[in-house]
């Protein structure tokens, strides 16, 4: 049998393809960020000139006037968006999985937003939020309320940006959780029902614990992508008005790309990674605390 050879060697080569991709395409750009972050870099037609200047980049970071607002806004944006998306995605997945008919249709419809390109989502939602002509203020007008300054009011702007993110990315959470819910062991669920568990007990005592790993992966990847959210916010508000929707990703784009400050830009990239890692660590720690409390009950 031709599988014989594959069988004998499988444990040796199964990792090779992914290691090859990571080695060739990820190691260099990632590791390069560190020396970049410690330097001032000038690219010219004659060549690229590096000057070792860690102090300068650090000073820039500490003296950055918008960095603090950007970190705070980013954390608020990520926590709010991901929390809402997880809750909505979970319940949508749960209820659709419980529907006797129409599951495939519902699933297809639910993923529409992630099929649209980000530039279209940003431009179209900007129209929807428009003060004078937008869909939302038309609806608000029908109810008889005063128009809302969705993007132009510093109190509303970040929330409006979160709404767009929730619309765009709830389908992501939904898809991952829906697949997991469909593979939940039927016998366990059946047993729970026979024992007379209420719907809430079913969810909190049986379904949520079984979904643990899927929930973790969904939250993990949603959080990482949310930290990098760029296109839509850029098109909706460019980080304004003032600094009300300024995010780390927008600031990075300005420094690294618009101002061509490669060294300080790399420093900012590393800062973003550090903030993500710290947030994930806190998230993991609180999840384990909750778990421990529950076990103790």
């Amino acid at each position: 049998m031709k599988d014989d050879f594959l069988n004998r060697t499988f444990r040796h080569w199964s990792m090779w393809p992914c290691l090859a991709f990571l080695l060739v395409l990820s190691v260099y750009p990632v590791l390069q960020l560190v020396p970049m972050a410690l330097s001032t870099i000038k690219i010219t037609g004659e060549g690229t000139f590096w000057t070792y200047s860690p102090r300068r980049n650090l000073d820039l970071l500490l003296g950055d006037a918008v960095l603090r607002d950007a970190v705070v806004n980013t954390l608020v944006f990520v926590v709010l968006s991901v929390a809402i998306e997880m809750v909505l995605g979970f319940f949508a997945a749960l209820f659709i999985a419980c529907m006797p008919r129409g599951r495939n249709f519902a699933r297809t419809v639910m993923i529409l937003p992630i099929l649209l390109p980000a530039v279209a989502i940003g431009s179209m939602w900007k129209l929807m939020f428009n003060y004078d002509f937008g869909l939302f203020n038309q609806m608000v007008g029908v109810i008889g309320l005063d128009p809302i300054n969705w993007l132009g009011d510093t109190r509303w702007a970040l929330l409006s940006v979160v709404i767009v993110d929730v619309w765009h990315w709830t389908p992501f959470v939904f898809l991952i959780l829906f697949a997991s819910i469909e593979t939940l062991p039927q016998d366990v669920l059946e047993a729970g029902r026979v024992d007379g568990a209420t719907a809430w007990q079913m969810i909190s005592l049986i379904i949520l614990p079984l979904l643990g790993p899927a929930l973790a992966v969904a939250a993990l990847f949603r959080a990482i992508v949310a930290f990098k959210a760029f296109d839509q916010v850029y098109l909706l508000t460019s980080g304004g008005p003032g600094t009300s929707t300024e995010l780390l990703s927008l600031h990075l784009n300005r420094v690294f790309f618009e101002q061509n400050q490669l060294g300080y830009g790399a420093m900012l990239s590393l800062t973003i990674i550090a903030v993500i890692v710290a947030t994930l660590a806190v998230g993991k720690w609180s999840a384990s605390q909750i778990e421990r409390k529950r076990m103790g009950q």
Binding site: L88, F91, A92, F95, I96, A97, C98, M99, P100, A106, V109, M110, L112, P113, L116, A120, M124, W125, M128, L135, W167, T170, P171, I181, E182, L184, L189, E190, R193, A199
Partner: peptide, 30 residues
């Protein structure tokens, strides 16, 4: 999964309908 019955089913359909409206509304508008 376990199919819902009675009141739970109505709530379930209500939630699904709302979710779909939220998702489809803007898409239809585009």
């Amino acid at each position: 999964m376990i199919p819902l019955h009675g009141r739970a089913a109505w709530i379930g359909y209500g939630v699904v309908a709302l979710a779909i409206l939220f998702i489809v509304g803007p898409t239809a508008w585009i």
